[in-house]
Simulated scan of single mutants.
Amino acid sequence: MNKRYWWILITYALMQFSAVPGVLLLRELGVPLDRIPGLWSMFSFSIGLLIIIFLLLPDIRNRHSARNRSSKGEAIRWAIIGVFLVFAAQYAAALIEMFVLGIEPGSENTETIVEFAKAFPAFILVISVIGPILEEIVFRLVIFGALYKRFNFWISGILSSLIFAAVHMDFTHLLVYTAMGLVFAFLYVKTKRILVPIIAHVAINLFVSVVNVLLADQIEEWMEHLEQLEQTSFIIGGLL
């Protein structure tokens, strides 16, 4: 692994650990507690992304020299296919967790992130765009890429995905994170373009953000309305 990639990992680690002094600083400045996580994440992730993109400038300039690199049309096609592959992998992994491992569905990590986004709506940009870009660069381009030079796809994909899960502090759903990581790694290997798993990752996170944050109240109202309709239909059916 070249020195620039080591600096990318260091930058990402510092960005994560900066939450501790960042929270203390914002508390001293009088920022409401429920807005602090979202506000600091917005700041630290944005700075981290700018630094990492700067470190990747040589790769960006030499991207056309990659062998067997997919065309733009193929990349777009695989990015779209990748969204459905990730959804399918998540669903399959969740079913195995429930019916084989006895793990209840739902993620505390996701619930916490949703609460942060509701308190500081701009945090959605971190969840949907900045975060996925950083994660694909770190976990697929750098970590998976380094492992893939020494091991086969499965070992590299599983190891990088386990690190991916560990950073999210969601060890209960290791299988789900591993399944997602393997799909993203496959998209990267298949197309030789890191932009492809980035697009798929952004699309997945954007969908989850819209459903769980922006449309959460409307969906709850729709569910209540459906329950009322079902109760009304049951009463009418009983009368008839």
Results as ranks from 00 to 15, higher is better:
95 L>E: 08
97 E>V: 07
97 E>H: 13
98 M>E: 05
100 V>F: 00
101 L>K: 11
101 L>Y: 10
102 G>D: 02
108 E>K: 03
109 N>F: 00
116 F>A: 04
117 A>P: 01
118 K>C: 09
118 K>T: 05
118 K>A: 04
121 P>D: 08
122 A>M: 14
123 F>S: 04
126 V>F: 07
131 G>T: 12
132 P>V: 15
134 L>K: 04
136 E>F: 11
137 I>G: 01
138 V>F: 10
139 F>V: 03
139 F>K: 02
139 F>S: 03
139 F>D: 00
144 F>K: 01
145 G>H: 15
146 A>P: 00
148 Y>M: 08
150 R>I: 13
152 N>Q: 12
152 N>S: 15
156 S>L: 09
157 G>Y: 11
162 L>M: 15
165 A>T: 03
166 A>G: 05
166 A>Y: 09
166 A>I: 12
167 V>Y: 13
168 H>L: 11
168 H>T: 09
170 D>F: 14
172 T>S: 14
174 L>Y: 11
175 L>Y: 01
179 A>N: 07
180 M>Y: 05
181 G>V: 00
182 L>F: 13
183 V>N: 02
183 V>H: 02
183 V>R: 04
185 A>F: 09
188 Y>N: 06
188 Y>G: 02
190 K>H: 11
191 T>D: 01
191 T>A: 07
191 T>P: 01
196 V>A: 11
198 I>L: 10
200 A>F: 00
200 A>W: 00
200 A>V: 05
201 H>I: 08
203 A>D: 10
207 F>E: 07
209 S>V: 01
209 S>D: 09
211 V>I: 14
212 N>T: 06
213 V>N: 03
213 V>F: 10
